[in-house]
Write a protein that binds this DNA or RNA. Structure first.
Lengths: 219, 219
DNA sequence: GCCTTTCTGTTGTAAAAACAACCGACTTTT
DNA sequence: AAAAGTCGGTTGTTTTTACAACAGAAAGGC
């Protein structure tokens, strides 16, 4: 577990907290470690959770498949990001989605009760973690709203423009890579792959964008 | 302000806290009160926030209009619910949406810094509020995911089924009212009103549902 | 290298949604 | 009470998307 302290230190949850403090908090917060191979399920729809998870290695997709096999990718989790926090309380009910490892991944899990119930003396930094937790979950909230903004667009083209603009803004350059292949992007935008591919090429022919594989340039 | 203490007591944020404690916390948390007439803007897109708001009277819509005048209703806020919590931190940037009073409304606002920075002695119940805040924002998070689930449906009919099923489940009966008129429901589901109206009638003719105005029955 | 699989773009067709326009029923305003 | 406005439903047309099927390119395995 020790090996992941430098990574944990980089996360939003432990921002502003030193290596030593993290080390001592790991036991205080009831941390446990798990590894997953590419393609494995980290969490399954219907499961119940009592832990907040931090991804310390790899990439995950939050997704769900409906009766007809249509897959929706709700979001992507990168190393250093937190997940599960919205489903870690008793009232929160069962998970609505699957979480799947896109690449070999590793996760550190914390008992949520131990985080939000401040231990009076032991950890001076506990209060900071609670604040960090609030900031992190706020941020996730904003990301969800952003995604709602994309999905509420009526046409495939508008969805693409929304998504690509956001990525450009996020990566601070009109040239950027996306973490999806075509099928995954289509699943993320909730559109048909071939229709999307078609639309992308039209946009390219119209001189709006350039792309090659998962690298895009906005013109 | 005192008059709203019974209402605040009912909210998720002050769950488990007595009238007297709330009263003393109002000043401790830097609470302020505001009233809005029907149609007024409570918050505007682009604004910056440093407060968490609790709606103590009325109804609000979170919405945004694009360049072409298409309105999207992101969500609805009912009396007793909290809002703004995801945009109340310095890093959170400007608001992405408008918040508009659907009916005459009243809001109590709290300085977010004073909530998440626990005051050591004054309020014994401060820790509870922090936990409540976490629970509440978690719940909002789940609602957003649920809405994503609806918008990720491909067809108008599927969106309607998702939405109506959820409402039935929420109100614990196959017969229920919805808080939208047709245009608002269409804006909420991000579809065309006439197409939606059409689809609703088809579903009625097929014997799936019955409805009259904003009252629906699932069969 | 060769075979297999995955990924991406392309095309034609069928289905669905958006759009626009209109009507009648109700409400609200004056 | 008349007028104006809102609301929900209907219809026909146009546009867009989904679907299915295929082909070439790239990647991966043996």
């Amino acid at each position: 577990m020790k090996q992941f302290i430098p990574i944990l230190k980089q996360t939003k949850l432990f921002s502003g907290i030193g290596n030593d403090e993290i080390s001592s908090m790991l036991s205080c917060l009831g941390a446990s470690f798990r590894a997953y191979k590419k393609g494995e399920f980290v969490l399954r729809q219907g499961e119940r959770l009592s832990e907040i998870m931090v991804l310390v290695k790899g990439n995950l997709h939050i997704q769900s498949d409906d009766y007809w096999g249509n897959r929706s990718i709700l979001g992507e989790i990168c190393a250093g990001e937190m997940f599960g926090e919205a489903y870690a309380t008793p009232e929160s009910g069962a998970l609505m989605n699957d979480v799947v490892a896109v690449t070999d991944s590793a996760v550190v899990a914390f008992d949520v009760k131990r985080i939000i119930t401040t231990c009076s003396s032991a950890c001076r930094f506990h209060t900071i973690v609670v604040q960090n937790l609030f900031f992190a979950i706020s941020e996730k909230n904003r990301k969800l709203v952003q995604k709602l903004g994309i999905l509420s667009k009526r046409s495939t083209r508008e969805k693409l423009i929304s998504y690509l603009s956001e990525q450009a803004k996020k990566q601070n350059s009109p040239s950027f890579s996306i973490p999806f292949n075509r099928q995954q992007l289509a699943d993320f935008l909730s559109v048909d792959r071939s229709a999307m591919s078609n639309e992308l090429c039209k946009m390219r022919d119209e001189g709006m964008i350039r792309f090659e594989k998962n690298r895009f340039v906005l013109l």
